[in-house]
Amino acid sequence: MFNFDFVKPSSIADAVAAMAQTGAQALSGGQTLTPTMKQRLASPSVLVSLTGIAEMKGVCLGADGLSIGGATTHATVAAEAGAYYPALADLAANIGDPMVRNRGTIGGSVANNDPAACYPSAVLASGATVVTNKRKIAADDYFVGMFSTALDEGEFITGVTFPVPEKAAYVKFNQPASRFALTGVFVAKYASGVRVAVTGASNNGVFRWAEAEAALSANFSASAVEGLTVSAADLITDLHGTAAYRANLVKVLTKRAVAGAK
């Protein structure tokens, strides 16, 4: 990989200053960015590690919901979020493998917005708020498309706040080599209605399945989505599965998530 200057600020204020430099790139756990840089698909001139900022770490229940610092690892979320939001802790506990979970962070995952990553589905299904060094962004406004988000240049995620649902579940069909979701569905039931977010399936990244949300809001049972179909039009076809295969998985996994929600 090309060389760069490495800086590791210890406060958000110092990170903002470091990120203002030309060619600066935020680094969180580095489980995606480091391999990407080895392939020279990214070549920042300044790499700003966010993992030394104490105010960006931790899990905390507040009035707006469960707030998780952007630099909190998947392992920490798996260990500490379970008492408040079991489905979210379960999702975190099954990302990648133990070594990835010890380094990878929620902020890094949500900022990268890999179309097959797990976390974006939880953020979107929970109607969570993405908190940055500049502003708060509603999940519905945050995910713009595959690897694309509402984040501006120099903007980084300091935390994510999740409204805690009555019940929820995340079910993914693993791609066994990469351990990403071939398709994954997060279902979250709130007093205001049910939200269903799908990852791994669409050419446009994570999306909400509106028909299932309406059906499940009226009747929260797996049978409620039985009569629905998912259009394969914008779904991913690759060597692991066709668009039609993924469309079927969306429905199957939604039913499993509803049945397993707690």
Binding site: K8, G30, S49
Partner: peptide, 15 residues
């Protein structure tokens, strides 16, 4: 690293 298993090919020494 500090008791946690990590993949050392995905961690910068300075980090």
């Amino acid at each position: 690293v500090d008791g946690k298993a990590v993949k050392s090919c995905a961690v910068f020494a300075l980090d």
